[in-house]
């Protein structure tokens, strides 16, 4: 989700005009990772929750449709492996892009002091003490929370799930009590994940202001410039600044090559033009 490389995006940026309607936000890799996470999560929820709430007649009806708990478990286990593989894919993808491709490590996903300040700022807004909202960079504090919630949630839920999947094998090297503990951890963590995703994640990604009723950026990979300006203004400014510098540099280089082969008079005029554009780009 986060490991998008700035360089990769700048390349995409370069091919579009600076005032493009849409800003690229997620690369194909991130979109695949999110899609796998989303589909496996939904399958896990719809095959897991009825097992937790076995008393409910809705669960019993749904299990009847699936042809019994054994089928549901088969699907649950298949989706579980999909999710585990997706996570390994994500980690290897970050490792590969930073180590092998030498792209920048995705530091913009790491929580910082600004996130705490932004949260505090939002509460001030909620309580009517401020009228402006915090201005976010590539990821808001909530987006970071979403990401890191999965990052610590998956080891708990997948670890406990694997113990439930192979209880006898697990107790060959863990104490027997690991099984009931895994059972309750899995069950409760699942409820937490479901509540968070269906209430908080959905609200802030799709139903909230500026995005209602649906925000397709994780599927299309891009977001409109107006939305970007509202949701991630700091990052947009940074992008525009870079774009300005890049254009300026490009022009300077062209001028440099041109001046090498041309007479002095037109060059001076050109150079002053370039300098003007450069300062403009930096202040944007």
């Amino acid at each position: 989700m986060t490991a998008i490389s700035m360089a990769e995006r700048m390349e995409e940026m370069a091919s579009s005009a600076p005032a493009a309607e849409y800003i690229p936000r997620f690369g194909i890799q991130q979109r695949i990772q999110h899609f796998l996470m989303m589909t496996s999560f939904l399958l896990l929820v719809f095959t897991g929750l009825p097992q937790k709430f076995n008393d409910a007649s809705l669960s019993q009806w749904w299990m009847g449709v699936l042809g019994g708990v054994d089928n549901a478990r088969m699907v649950h286990r298949f989706a579980a492996w999909t999710m585990i593989i997706d996570c390994l894919y994500h980690i290897s993808y970050i490792a590969f892009s930073t180590v092998a491709l030498r792209r920048k490590f995705p530091i913009w996903a790491i929580p910082s002091l600004k996130d705490a300040q932004d949260l505090f700022h939002d509460f001030e807004y909620f309580f009517g003490r401020r009228t402006d909202r915090p201005r976010f960079g590539r990821f808001s504090y909530l987006e970071k929370f979403d990401y890191w919630a999965i990052f610590w949630g998956i080891p708990v839920i997948a670890g406990s799930g694997l113990i439930l999947m192979f209880p006898v094998a697990a107790t060959k090297f863990l104490p027997g009590v690991a099984v009931p503990v895994a059972f309750l951890a899995h069950s409760d963590e699942a409820v937490l994940a479901v509540l968070w995703v269906f209430i908080v994640h959905f609200f802030f990604v799709h139903l909230g202001p500026h995005v209602f009723p649906f925000n397709p950026s994780m599927f299309t990979g891009k977001m409109s410039r107006e939305q970007y300006k509202v949701l991630h203004p700091l990052e947009l400014e940074e992008m525009e600044a870079r774009e300005g510098r890049r254009l300026a540099k490009q022009e300077r280089d062209e001028v440099a090559t041109a001046s090498a082969s041309q007479e002095s008079a037109p060059v001076a005029a050109d150079a002053s033009h370039v300098a003007g554009e450069q300062t403009e780009g930096q202040s944007a």
């Binding site: 939002d122 509460f123 909620f126 909530l142 919630a149 409760d188 963590e189 409820v191 937490l192 509540l195 968070w196 209430i199 908080v200 609200f203 802030f204 909230g208 202001p209």
Partner: peptide
């Protein structure tokens, strides 16, 4: 679970 969900629901309601 209660604490995390409470935090989330709080933000949703305020927003």
């Amino acid at each position: 679970t209660a604490a995390v969900v409470f935090f989330g629901v709080l933000l949703v309601s305020f927003e």
